[in-house]
Computed example of a mutant assay.
Amino acid sequence: MTINSAPSNDLTVLPVRNAKQLSLFIKLPRVLYSHFPNYIPPLDFEEVSLLHPKKSAFFRYGTAQYFLAYKGDKVVGRISAQIDPNALREWKEPIGLFGALDAIDDAEVVKQLINAASNWLKKQGMQKIRGPYTLNANSEAGTMVKGQSEPPMIAMPWHPEYLEKHIAAAGLSKAMDLVSYQMIMGEEARKAHKIPSGLKVGSDRLGNITTRKLNMKEISRDGEILRQLYNDAWDNTWGFVPLTPTEMSVLIRDLKSMLKPENYVLVEQNKMPVAVALVIPNIYDISAGIAPTPSLFGWGKLAYRAMRHRFKSARVILLGISHSIRDTAMGALMPSLVIDELFNRGEALPYTMIELGWILEDNMGMRNLIERITPEPCKVHRIYEAELDYKH
């Protein structure tokens, strides 16, 4: 598939070259989408952590170019093009990435943004484009194609309904859908989630199985256990890129103030880690009424709400089952044990809803387990790709 055409006379796409343009690039979605009642802008420090070259973990190993689209002097869209060397090694294909794609409801704007990213990737020797990823596969992923009216969730991008059709019209095809589910915490969900009778962690047939919480004094060590188990669990699955130590350290840095010991579920068999899950509180729950760029008073509110853990919802962002037990009866049971443990921690974790996602659409084992509790995905995010018009 060739992605190439001349831009319209009144439309210009230019690379981001200075600090002022970078600031505009980072804040642009709130300008473009402010008139949508279901759009709630993230806090600026979250976006800076994702996108600013001096803050994002991605730039410690990857390269990227940002672009802005202009109609006259009005900025109408943005996109990033990036090379992730970890993805190139894992996928063993010259696949470049795009991300941070946001635009007005104009097919030509989206097309020319994708053209700009594609042309930059071709100059880097890439033969295929895939995304959106902001900025890599272990961060925000996909274009939202379902769930625009659902409550916002941490690290889950929001896009208007028109964006998917404009991406398709620009020549990109669906590569994979990423699905998410809302698990309403309570007795009804607990009854829907049943593990076989007679199976209780630490006794009888599960006598060698134990669970533990996050050790706040050894948070870096527990983060490394999480990273290694996650990488082991998802190796060789579609689109997988190993989580790096740097990415894990940045994740811990950004989340430490919001985490409680109960947000981390580690399952051990004979004292060896075999399964892990990390539940992160939804920062949108405590940012209500606070501007995207908080005042000093706003920062105080955020800190107070975080300290008091005034969250109502959360998201499971990392869940992994060790390869050593994956194809065993114990491995099949492990996701159920992790979910059961989350229910057991209901008093310590004040969440009325936990979002499970994202999950690859073809991971039917995990989806079938979750759909016993909640039958339909609440959100769908789509990854696209296309062959580039590549010439040596």
Rank of each mutant, 00 (worst) to 15 (best):
H159D: 09
N263C: 09
K54M: 00
E164R: 14
S49K: 03
A306C: 03
P242T: 05
I95S: 08
T211E: 03
M185K: 02
E262A: 07
N4V: 15
M272C: 07
S322I: 09
D84P: 05
Y351G: 04
L14Y: 11
W158M: 09
I359N: 03
V250W: 01
P94C: 04
K200W: 03
Q269N: 03
D285I: 08
G99A: 14
T2S: 11
V110I: 00
L14E: 09
N18I: 09
R221L: 02
K191T: 07
E371F: 11
T134D: 05
E47C: 13
P29R: 07
T374V: 13
H193M: 10
G320T: 10
L135W: 13
A170Y: 12
M272W: 08
Y230H: 13
L50A: 13
R326W: 00
E224V: 06
V316I: 09
P160F: 08
T12I: 02
M353I: 04
A69T: 07
I317C: 06
G346E: 05
A348M: 10
W91Y: 05
P132N: 07
M176G: 13
L255F: 15
V179L: 14
E46L: 12
L319T: 15
F58D: 12
D285S: 06
E262T: 01
K256A: 12
I219L: 01
V276E: 05
N208V: 13
Y181A: 12
I104F: 05
L342V: 14
I3N: 02
P350Y: 11
N115H: 06
R89F: 02
N263W: 07
I209H: 08
P41K: 04
G99Y: 13
G131H: 09
F343T: 07
L51F: 08
W91N: 07
V250A: 09
E218M: 07
A116G: 04
L68C: 05
K312A: 01
Q112P: 04
G202Y: 03
F311E: 09
F343D: 00
R30C: 12
D340K: 13
R315Q: 00
V76G: 01
A332H: 03
G142R: 02
F25D: 00
I252M: 09
W234T: 11
G147A: 05
D10L: 02
A100K: 08
K111V: 01
L255Y: 10
M183V: 11
L318Q: 04
L43M: 02
M272V: 14
L88I: 12
V145G: 15
H166C: 06
P94N: 06
G320F: 07
I359R: 06
P242R: 04
W234E: 02
R326E: 00
L51C: 07
K271V: 14
G72I: 04
L43T: 10
T210D: 00
M307A: 15
M366R: 11
N4F: 15
M366I: 13
L24Y: 09
K165Y: 14
K312L: 05
N9Y: 02
